[in-house]
C-alpha cells in the first residue's frame, strides 16, 4: 500500500507540481484538476498499476484525494 502511495504521488506531482496533493481533499470539487489532467493521470495510473480505470469510475468521490484514488486502485486490483 505504501508503495502504491509513493508511485501515485509521483504521477500526480509530475502532472501538477504546484498542488499540495497530500492535503487536498477536493481535487475535483474545487476544480483543481481539469479534464486534461484527469486523462493524463488516469492513463499513467493504468500503465503503472496495470488496471483499467474506465469512464464509469470517473466519479468525483474517486478522485478528490490521494486516499480516494488509492482506494479505487486497490478496488480495481482486487477485481
Amino acid at each position: 500500500m505504501e508503495e502504491n502511495r509513493e508511485e501515485l504521488m509521483e504521477i500526480l506531482e509530475d502532472t501538477r507540481p504546484e498542488l499540495d496533493f497530500e492535503n487536498e481533499t477536493a481535487l475535483i470539487d474545487d476544480q483543481l484538476l481539469d479534464s486534461f489532467d484527469i486523462i493524463s493521470i488516469v492513463s499513467e495510473i493504468n500503465d503503472t498499476f496495470d488496471i483499467s480505470i474506465n469512464v464509469n469510475d470517473l466519479l468525483p468521490e474517486n478522485f478528490n484525494s490521494v486516499d480516494a484514488i488509492l482506494a479505487l486502485i486497490k478496488k480495481l486490483q482486487e477485481e
Binding site: I38, I39, V55
Partner: peptide, 14 residues
C-alpha cells in the same frame, strides 16, 4: 462527462 471522457479513455485511444 458524456463525450470527452468516454472518447479519451476508450480502448483505441489508450
Amino acid at each position: 462527462d458524456y463525450v470527452f471522457y468516454p472518447i479519451a479513455l476508450s480502448k483505441p485511444f489508450a
